[in-house]
């Protein structure tokens, strides 16, 4: 029963939405379903938040490995939540001066703005910037001219790496106009728009068919592994 009902809902919902896509009167049902999913996912935030607090409180109270990190997580989570939801330090909006919560939550100088500007922003930027370091170490480890294909890949990588900087222009600007297609910056564009696009299209077509087939398996109940057990 615990599996049958979700299966019926999935199958009915899925096939109705497929058919609805072709009928003018029902074409927006897909968007309505997406909005309903957003509502569900938003409510599930509470579930996630609760779980986060529970797991980390447990770790702190057990003094498990890395409990200090858990403590920081709990404090940061609660502080951001209180400051953001309570709009602490935010002035009421000029339109509704009598309502203290009518102000903008990210008002300049407010504690939430401060958290965003001096904690969230540098932290996320740092994480993204780490990619530069990892790309260098991955390139050092993975690129080997083992065979013809790898050599082709390597040469292409060099052209693109040079072509995305001034080095590309500098190295081949001496080429006469009738050979301008061979200038590194132009080769880069050619590789990206011809070879890369062709390869990407093939992968995308494969993926699109894979998505359609997987979706059908889910709708038909052929693949039920994501639903879990039928028993409690």
């Amino acid at each position: 029963m615990k599996r049958t009902v979700p299966l019926i809902i999935t199958a009915l919902g899925g096939f109705v939405l497929i058919v609805a896509y072709f009928i003018p009167a029902t074409q927006n049902w897909g968007e309505v379903a997406a909005i309903w999913f957003d509502i569900l996912a938003s409510i599930a935030f509470v579930l996630g938040g609760g779980n986060l607090i529970r797991i980390h409180l447990k770790k702190v109270s057990n003094k498990g490995a890395g409990w200090g990190y858990s403590l920081i997580t709990i404090v940061a989570f609660l502080a951001t939540l209180v400051v953001g939801l309570g709009k602490i330090g935010v002035h009421p909006s000029a339109l509704y001066p009598n309502f203290p919560l009518s102000g903008e939550y990210r008002e300049l100088g407010s504690p939430f703005w401060w958290l965003y500007e001096y904690a969230f922003k540098p932290l996320t930027a740092t994480m993204f910037a780490m990619l530069a370091f990892y790309i260098a170490s991955a390139a050092f480890r993975a690129f080997r001219a083992k065979n013809i294909e790898a050599i082709l890949l390597l040469s292409t990588a060099f052209i693109i790496l040079l072509g995305r900087t001034f080095a590309g222009v500098f190295l081949t600007s001496w080429m006469p106009d009738f050979l301008s297609g061979l200038r590194i910056e132009n080769l880069t564009i050619y590789i990206m728009s011809v070879f890369n696009t062709a390869g990407n299209r093939a992968i995308m077509i494969g993926i699109a068919l894979g998505i359609a087939s997987t979706s059908l398996k889910v709708l038909l109940g052929v693949d039920r592994s994501y639903l879990g057990t039928g028993e409690k």
Partner: peptide, 21 residues
Amino acid sequence: PQLVAHLLIILLIILANVIYF
């Protein structure tokens, strides 16, 4: 910075291949 970083990556790849061969 992007130019120097790209050149470094190219050098690293060349170095890795020298070691490999």
